[in-house]
C-alpha cells in the first residue's frame, strides 16, 4: 500500500465547551487516506463534513483525537506552523472560488508561492505552467470579475496546485456552477489525479459527483457511516463500515 497522507484517529470536535449549549459536531472519526487516492466525503448539510474539512485543511484543530498529516501531529502545532501546513501541504478549492479581487489570475496563482518565499521569477514560471495545465493561459492577465464561474474555479485549482501540496481539498467545487461547467471542473480533478497522481479529497453533498471518485466516505451526525475503501488497518473503522 502507498504512503498514508491523512491518518485520523478518534477525532472529536466540540464547540462552546463548558457552556450550556455545548455542541459535539464530530463524534470520534477515524480514517486513513493514502497518497494518490481520489476520495469523496459525502454528507447532508449539518452532518459535520465542513468541520471535518476544516480540520483536514489545518484551518481548525480537533478537540480530541489525533490527526497526522504526513506523520506530523497537527493538533500540536502553533498558529504559525499551521499557516505553513496550509501553505505547503494543502491546496484549497472552494465552492465560491475565493479568488482575491482586483488581482489577476496569474497573481492569484502566484500568491501561495509568494507566502512560501519563492522567487519572483520561479513564481511566474510555475504559475504560467499551472494556468496552462487548467487551460487558462489566455486569461492570465484577467481579474476575477472578468472571468466566468468555471474559469474562476479553474484558476482556483491552479492556485491550489501552486506549492505542489500533499492533498487537494475541494469543498463543493461545482456547487456554484451549472452541470456542464461542473463536469469540466471535475474533468480537471480527474486529470490531476491520473496525470499528476494528486491526492484529492472532494467534499460534496451530491452522490452523483461522489460516484465519480474512487472511494466514498459518508458522514452523518458527526460519524463515518460508510467507507467504500475502508482500511482494516485503522482501528475503529471496521465496526463502522457498511
Amino acid at each position: 500500500m502507498s504512503k498514508t497522507v491523512i491518518n485520523m484517529s478518534n477525532i472529536i470536535k466540540r464547540y462552546y465547551i463548558g457552556q450550556p449549549n455545548e455542541l459535539q459536531i464530530l463524534n470520534g472519526i477515524s480514517l486513513n487516506i493514502h497518497e494518490g487516492e481520489f476520495v469523496s466525503i459525502v454528507g447532508a448539510s449539518g452532518s459535520g463534513k465542513s468541520t471535518l474539512m476544516n480540520i483536514i485543511g489545518a484551518l481548525d484543530k480537533p478537540t480530541e483525537g489525533q490527526y497526522l498529516l504526513n506523520d506530523t501531529d497537527i493538533s500540536k502545532l502553533s498558529d504559525k506552523q499551521l499557516s505553513d501546513i496550509r501553505n505547503k501541504e494543502i491546496g484549497f478549492v472552494f465552492q465560491t472560488f475565493n479568488l482575491i479581487p482586483r488581482t489577476t489570475a496569474l497573481k492569484n496563482v502566484e500568491l501561495p508561492m509568494l507566502y512560501a518565499g519563492v522567487s519572483k521569477k520561479d513564481r511566474t514560471k510555475r504559475a504560467k505552467e499551472l494556468l496552462e495545465l487548467v487551460e487558462m493561459q489566455d486569461r492570465s492577465t484577467h481579474k476575477p470579475n472578468e472571468l466566468s464561474g468555471g474559469q474562476k474555479q479553474r484558476v482556483a485549482i491552479a492556485r491550489a496546485m501552486a506549492n505542489n501540496p500533499s492533498i487537494i481539498l475541494a469543498d463543493e467545487p461545482t456547487g456554484a456552477l451549472d452541470s456542464k461547467t461542473g463536469h469540466l471542473v471535475m474533468d480537471i480533478f480527474h486529470k490531476l489525479h491520473k496525470e499528476e497522481g494528486k491526492t484529492i479529497v472532494l467534499i460534496t453533498h451530491s452522490p452523483e459527483l461522489a460516484a465519480e471518485t474512487e472511494r466514498i466516505i459518508t458522514i452523518s451526525d458527526g460519524s463515518v457511516i460508510s467507507d467504500t475503501g475502508a482500511d482494516v488497518s485503522v482501528p475503529g473503522n471496521t465496526e463502522v463500515s457498511a
Binding site: S83, D84, R86, F92, N98, I100, P112, R159
Partner: peptide, 16 residues
Amino acid sequence: TREIGIRKALGAKKRT
C-alpha cells in the same frame, strides 16, 4: 474579511 480568510487559507501568517 473574506480576502483575509482566503489569504490565511493559502498560508499567510499572522505577521504577513
